[in-house]
Design a protein around this nucleic acid. Sequence first.
DNA 1: GAACAGACGCAACTCGATTGCACAAGAATT
DNA 2: AATTCTTGTGCAATCGAGTTGCGTCTGTTC
Lengths: 159, 159
Amino acid sequence: MRAASSESRRSSTAAGAMSAAEQLIRATGARVTQGRILVLEVLQAAGRALTHHEIEAAVAGPLDRVTVYRVLDWLTREQIAHKIPGDDRVWRFTIAGQKQAHHHAHFQCTDCSQVICLDDVPNTLRPRLPAGYRSVGVEVTVKGQCKSCVRPAPRRSRR
Amino acid sequence: MRAASSESRRSSTAAGAMSAAEQLIRATGARVTQGRILVLEVLQAAGRALTHHEIEAAVAGPLDRVTVYRVLDWLTREQIAHKIPGDDRVWRFTIAGQKQAHHHAHFQCTDCSQVICLDDVPNTLRPRLPAGYRSVGVEVTVKGQCKSCVRPAPRRSRR
DNA sequence: GAACAGACGCAACTCGATTGCACAAGAATT
DNA sequence: AATTCTTGTGCAATCGAGTTGCGTCTGTTC
C-alpha cells in the first residue's frame, strides 16, 4: 500500500503529529489535499450536521465553492462523512462515526432546520414491506424544536 | 360558517353526489376551486407519493405549474396532504390519511427515488433528546429497492 | 526532478421551487 | 342577476442549491 511510505515520510516533518483528519484521509489511499483536510477538520470540530454553506464559511477563503461540494461528495463516497436530506432541500453533512455505522437517528429542528445526531437510539424497527421490496436500512428522524428555538422567538430558515 | 349554505346549494345540482375531494376541500371553509379538486383527486387516486411533476402531468393541461405548487402548499397547510423530502431534493406529496395522522413510515427506493407509505408500522420509538429539546414527532424512512428496481436493471433518477 | 493522474478554480449551467403583479373566478350581499 | 369583496390563478422573472466542462495546478510515484 502506497500510503505507508508517504505517511512515514510525512510524519518525520517538523510539524510532528498528523491530525486525525489527515490520518483518516491518508488511510483511504487517495490524495491528501488541503481541501480534504480542512473540510474534514471542520466536520470533526462541529458537534452537529453542517450545510455546505456553513462548511464553506468555516474553511473561510482558500477553498472554492465547487471544491467544497466535491470534497463532501468524496467524503460521502468514502463513508467518512454522512449526507442527510433536510426539510429545507439542503444537504447536511456529519462525520460518520464507526459505531453508528448505518443505524442511528437524527433530530431536525422544525424552526431553524438544524440537524444533530442522536447516537443512543436502538432503532430495532423492522417495518414490513410490500412483497418484492427490499430494505437496506431504516432512517429515523425526530422532528421538533432545538434548544435555541424552544424558548425564545423561533429563528426561521437558518442555513 | 359559510361552508354550510354553499354546500347545500351545491349538492342540489344536477351533478348529484360531490366527489370525496370536493367534500374535503369544502369542509375547510376555503374556496372550492377547479385546481384544488383536480390536484386532490390525483393524490387520492395515486397509491403512492407523487412529485410536483407527476401531479402536473396528471392534471394535464388546465393548471399552471405555479398553481399546482400553491395548491400543494395549501393542501399541506390544511393537513390534507403530506409533504415528504426525498434524497433527490424533490418534494413528494400524499394524502394524509386520518389514521396515520402523525406517526407512519415511508419507503424510499434508492434507485428510482419513488416513495410509498407504510401504514402498519408501530413506531413506538421514543428517542431521548438532549436537555432543552422538544420532540413533536418521529419520521421513519426505510431505504431500499422497490419492486420495479429490485430485479431488473435499476432505473435511475425517475422523477 | 520529471511525468502522470487526480484535484482545483472559474464560469456557465440545470432545475425545482418561489415571488410579484395584473387579472379572473368563487362566494356573500343586495 | 348584478355587485362587490376576497382569494386564487397565470405569466414572467427570479432564486439558490447543486452540477458540469475545461484548462491549470499539485500531490505522488518513479
